[in-house]
Design a protein around this nucleic acid. Structure first.
Lengths: 168, 168
DNA sequence: ACAAACTTTCATTTATTTTTGAAAATTCAG
DNA sequence: CTGAATTTTCAAAAATAAATGAAAGTTTGT
């Protein structure tokens, strides 16, 4: 298999994979493209290599920056902006966990906490089932929250220790 | 907050939550409804409570059964089928992890393994970047695979030990 | 075997999400 | 300040995903 072919397949599959996880196909493809590009790319490079419009490329690149997965890179003497993706997959995973936790788990727990304050007779079967389910989710969510924080933290300290080694 | 109101909000939010994770809104809502229902429901109950069509209800209930999150329940003397959701959130989580792993992580790793066999000069910057990214994903995926298997297994043994206690 | 009760399918419709591309806004060198 | 280069916005169009409901299929009691 040739590089260009493998690259195409990787980008296409990463895009399809993303859609199964609620991620816009183009965003996942831009991410894939930047992951396998040794040097930073411009918006026009992305447009050309993925055959997408200017607006689409722009929107998804910015979304990736919001997610902390892509950085703007300044190339001296160039007017255009360049973009480059974090290449360390462990850092990528940590960042995604961090963002999803913030965007989804935390608001969900907030809601669950509100719902756990319903008034009602615990003798009632319907009420009891509701409270039990909500409490189950609450406990699970709180545990997940703690576990994910630990993962994020341990990754950061791993990162820190790696950095320290570099400067020792 | 009253039960009916809380229930409505839970179902709506669970549905919205699902869409962020690539899960069809109705499927997530049916799941939520069954999670807070003390007794099994029929397809008509689901249709009525969620205001969805027969086809939609049927399709999503079956999908939930495929995912191993909902069971058909036979009520003696009744012609209709009844459906009930697994209520233990830890088991629900385990089951979702199991299914997503099978449906998505495993095929992705298969692809990555194929892509890691590209021919090419490692001196070439493009080729090197591609190989490095693929290998990074490969290592990460293999670790995730092992970790998730451990989680699934530990849940099963926790389940087993709970069961054993019941019969001791 | 029949028919009522119930379940499943799937072509069509509807809703939602994504993409486009031209216009507006911004940036920056001279 | 000017204007060309570049980036961003957003209304409209296109693509995709989901829902509908009637018809076909299946099951079960008599």
């Amino acid at each position: 298999m040739k590089l260009s072919e493998a690259k195409q397949q990787f980008i296409a599959s990463w895009g399809a994979f993303g859609t199964h996880w609620g991620i816009n196909r183009t965003m996942a493809q831009v991410h894939a493209l930047l992951l396998v590009s040794p040097d930073p790319l411009t918006q026009d490079d992305v447009m050309e290599q993925l055959s997408v419009s200017r607006g689409n490329a722009n929107m998804n690149i910015r979304e990736l920056i919001d997610w902390g997965l892509v950085d703007r890179v300044i190339v001296p003497g160039e007017r255009k902006e360049y973009f480059s993706a974090e290449k360390d997959i462990w850092k990528v995973a940590t960042q995604i966990i961090k963002e999803r936790k913030k965007r989804e788990l935390d608001p969900m727990l907030k809601l669950i906490n509100q719902l756990s304050t319903i008034e009602g007779d615990k003798k009632d079967k319907e009420t009891k089932a509701f409270i039990d389910t909500i409490n189950g989710i609450k406990k699970f969510g709180e545990q997940a929250d703690r576990t994910l924080d630990t993962m994020i933290k341990s990754e950061e300290s791993w990162f820190l220790s790696t950095m320290l080694k570099l400067f020792k």
